[in-house]
Design a protein around this nucleic acid. Structure first.
Length: 338
DNA sequence: CGAGCAATAT
DNA sequence: CATATTGCTC
């Protein structure tokens, strides 16, 4: 699969009462570098979904014999959890397909599935994201514009994807969801890192463990492993910088006291080539912001308007480093360096 | 199970 | 390069 641009790790839940076909599906999906969970039993699958709503990106479900029951399940899943659901069946007559689609299915696939079809399946959750983002944008600022036409059929591609990550992931400058199907790996932006730091600080240096940090951050689709990895790096850099500051009174070799210069040097090093860690992450100053953590999970738009409704505003925000070609991950750092 | 750490992989 | 994963100890 393509390296950075493939949504690997997309979490797919497959339901089919035929266990051997489940196995086939699993292999195919793994070849697409998705994460797969399979169930041959609807009840178990449903209880899994109930317990892991935030953990399932897409459901692929066989059309079971009592078609009506399948449709009920379909309705429940799509309405209650808002998880895109694909129906597969060996019987592809039009009325069945129609029923599935009208009951909320994102797609209908004829049963001996080829891997090509599964490769493209992520688009359904991607679409959902885009529509949510667009919808939010409309309800935010504009009351009545003729949207229907504005993003009718395929207008989705260019503009919507360009604004997707900021629209989807940020709410008042607070990151609430990191999922971005164009990228396989998470990028720790300043915002996200600040929330991480806020969580660490509010817990206290000793009690800051990945699981609790994750809870406090309240960022959808962020995993404990990702937090752990970041925490590990964070502590490493923390250790390095304090270590450097400390051994600084004993200059390395020559008879100079040279204190300040080495401090400056270490600070320069850490701020230029690497990260945001020292900027607001310095733990020596411990409780620099205990209170304003979002204990109120709501995080509503109190300030109401961000002026980003029209393309013109974006141009104002454009950095000169903003050459379209380059990847999204990098220019964030330019932003931070300033 | 999960934290923490280093090595290793992508 | 930053992030993810693995393997190990506690």
């Amino acid at each position: 699969m393509d390296h950075e641009l493939w949504p690997s790790g997309l979490r797919v839940l497959v339901i089919d009462n035929n266990s051997s076909y489940l196995k086939v599906m699993e292999e195919l999906l793994i070849k697409c570098s998705y994460k797969v969970t399979t169930y041959n039993n609807v009840r178990e699958a449903m209880s899994f979904i109930y317990g892991n709503q935030q953990t399932v990106d897409l459901i692929i479900c066989d059309l079971f014999f009592p078609t009506e029951d399948s449709l009920l399940i379909l309705q429940e899943v799509t309405s209650k959890f808002d998880i895109p659901t694909v129906i597969m069946s060996s019987n592809g007559d039009t009325s069945t397909v129609m029923k599935c689609i009208t009951n909320g299915a994102s797609d209908f696939l004829i049963k001996p599935l080829r891997i090509e079809e599964l490769k493209n399946i992520w688009q359904h959750v991607f679409r959902k994201q885009i529509f949510e983002a667009e919808h939010r944008k409309c309800s935010n600022a504009q009351q009545h514009v003729d949207h229907q036409l504005s993003y009718g059929a395929m207008g989705i591609t260019e503009e919507a994807t360009a604004t997707l990550d900021s629209e989807i992931r940020e709410n008042n400058g607070t990151v609430t969801d990191i999922r971005d199907l164009r990228k396989s790996r998470l990028s720790w932006t300043m915002q996200l890192h600040r929330q991480f730091i806020a969580a660490v600080n509010s817990l206290g240096a000793d009690k800051a463990v990945p699981k609790k940090i994750l809870e406090i951050m309240k960022v959808k689709h962020l995993t404990r492993e990702q937090v752990a990895s970041h925490l590990q790096k964070y502590r490493l850099h923390l250790r390095n910088s304090t270590q450097a500051l400390h051994k600084d009174d004993r200059p390395s070799s020559s008879g100079y006291p040279n204190n300040e210069s080495s401090i400056l040097r270490t600070q320069l090093n850490s701020s230029s080539n690497s990260l945001y860690f020292d900027q607001d992450g310095c733990m020596e100053i411990t409780d620099y912001s205990l209170p304003k953590d979002d204990l109120s999970s709501g995080s509503e738009c109190i300030l109401g308007e961000r002026n980003n409704y029209s393309p013109e505003c974006f141009q104002d925000f454009r950095w000169d480093s903003d050459k379209q070609g380059s990847e999204t991950t990098t220019y964030i750092w330019n932003f931070e360096a300033e």
